[in-house]
Design a protein around this nucleic acid. Structure first.
Length: 153
DNA sequence: GCCAACGTTGGC
DNA sequence: GCCAACGTTGGC
């Protein structure tokens, strides 16, 4: 099993929105960055665990745990002219972008804030706290995963 | 709202 | 293929 962290702006789609979604699942669409896309396409597998992170908000934080309920499929929003994720350069015959499906597991009682993560000596190598890290889909090591889960208890 | 750090685009 | 200009991310 692999571990990941995925970012979402809570004004757009929050952990609460996921919890309230049909079957508590959502297609994870709109990833338009090649490095993130490559992770979704090549490495994110069904049943992988994912930290759900709220970015661009008052208190950036890991707010819960979700799982990958379906691995890579074509991101159909790229072909939808009415979607904010529409990409005229993505061709149906040769799709550029990938989505997965996420399923809610739990919302943490206490969000684990970016400030807390940055200050944690066991997390100094975490991708999230690296300088200039903007990746919206990023790997988390098993050690980081276990440590962060212990912080959520 | 600012702006540093990245990523992408496109002319050459 | 270089790289300047532009666009985006996301913390603060």
């Amino acid at each position: 099993m692999n571990y990941w962290l995925m970012k979402s702006e809570p004004d757009e789609f929050s952990i609460d929105d996921l919890q309230l979604s049909h079957h508590q699942k959502t297609p994870w669409q709109g990833i338009r960055n090649y490095q993130a896309r490559n992770f979704l396409r090549d490495s994110v597998k069904q049943n992988d665990r994912v930290f759900f992170y709220h970015s661009s908000c008052k208190v950036p934080a890991i707010v819960g745990l979700v799982e990958v309920s379906q691995a890579a499929t074509v991101d159909t929003s790229a072909f939808d002219v009415t979607s904010v994720y529409f990409d005229k350069k993505s061709d149906i015959a040769n799709p550029k972008w990938i989505q997965v499906e996420l399923h809610f597991i739990e919302k943490f009682n206490q969000p684990i804030t970016l400030k807390q993560l940055k200050a944690d000596p066991q997390l100094t190598n975490m991708v999230l706290v690296a300088k200039g890290a903007r990746l919206s889909v990023q790997p988390v090591t098993a050690e980081e995963f276990e440590h962060i889960m212990s912080l959520s208890r």
